[in-house]
């Protein structure tokens, strides 16, 4: 299998797997603990509008999707705070509106639309050099931001109102973080696709959360779990020739099942020894 490493698309996809694990490990932990999974799903699907517009205007779809995703993320954050509309309703509207715009623009784009399936279902083997550079840049930004502002992020995520009583710029921090969430989603679309990207932001974190109740450790564990999951998926997809995105998600869900079973057996045996001690 080693000889396939000499092809640049293989190195690109391995690098993409690495950076996807870092970005999704960090951002996913934030999303899961803040209970923003549905919001993130909304941003993901809304970004399809940006991809459609990118095709129509002849831009790189990743750039237009990034702009679209950030604007819709900021929009939800703003609308749900300043108006009376329920946040989940705003997300629902945005979710379908973005998809609708994407479909309209792809439909009116003359001629053949290349690589559309790449964006919907992901294709880690077609990740370009530019994509890898962008993911590297995002990884560096996220690592720096979450290292330097770790406590601030943790405290505000835990109890926003309390942070406000200490005159912390909660709104500004939320806007920055939601933009980073949007960027992470868009840059990972190539890896597993719009339809599946939410799983990279939730499954590794849910597995990690089974074994750790510490924010930092959940981030680190999720990164490792994602990496193992993505590589396992890649090998699967190479060996039995199935789409890589689906293979990655499939392996992650299997891991989750195994982890949950292990955790249940472990906690039961701990309970049993404790009861034994009481009885003695």
């Amino acid at each position: 299998m080693l000889e396939i490493l000499q092809y640049s698309f293989i190195t690109n996809s391995l690098l993409a797997a690495f950076f996807a694990s870092i970005t999704c490990g960090i951002v996913g932990t934030y999303i899961v603990t803040r209970r923003m999974v549905f919001l993130s799903g909304g941003i993901t699907h809304a970004s399809f509008g940006g991809i459609g517009m990118g095709y129509f205007f002849g831009l790189n779809p990743i750039f237009s999707a990034a702009v679209f995703a950030i604007l819709s993320a900021l929009g939800v954050e703003f609308l749900s705070k300043r108006t009376e509309i329920r946040e989940d309703s705003v997300i629902g509207i945005l979710w379908s509106f973005g998809m609708a715009i994407g479909i309209i623009f792809i439909f009116i784009t003359p001629g053949y639309v290349p690589n559309l399936m790449t964006y919907l279902f992901g294709s880690i083997l077609t990740v370009s050099g530019l994509d890898v550079w962008l993911m590297l840049a995002l990884s560096v930004i996220l690592i720096l931001f979450f290292t330097f502002f770790y406590r601030l992020i943790l405290f505000v995520a835990y109890d926003q109102n309390y942070a406000r009583t200490h005159k912390i710029a909660v709104d500004l921090l939320n806007y920055i973080l939601i933009s980073l969430v949007a960027l992470t989603i868009v840059l990972n679309i190539k890896v597993v696709g719009i339809i599946l990207v939410i799983s990279l932001l939730t499954i590794p974190q849910s597995i990690a959360n089974l074994f750790s109740k510490n924010f930092r450790n959940i981030i680190l564990l999720s990164i490792v779990i994602s990496l193992v999951g993505v590589l396992t998926g890649l090998i699967f997809s190479y060996k039995i020739n199935i789409p890589s995105g689906a293979a990655i998600i499939f392996s992650l869900v299997i891991f989750f099942g195994l982890a949950k079973a292990t955790q249940m057996i472990l906690s039961r045996s701990i309970l049993k020894t404790k009861i034994q001690k009481i009885l003695e």
């Binding site: 603990t33 405290f155 309390y162 510490n214 924010f215």
Partner: peptide
């Protein structure tokens, strides 16, 4: 308060000194 949030008692109390 979200009781499932992954944070320790020590960190919660530290957040009282955030300013």
């Amino acid at each position: 308060i979200d009781k499932k949030f992954p944070i320790s008692v020590c960190d919660v109390v530290l957040s009282g000194l955030i300013y």
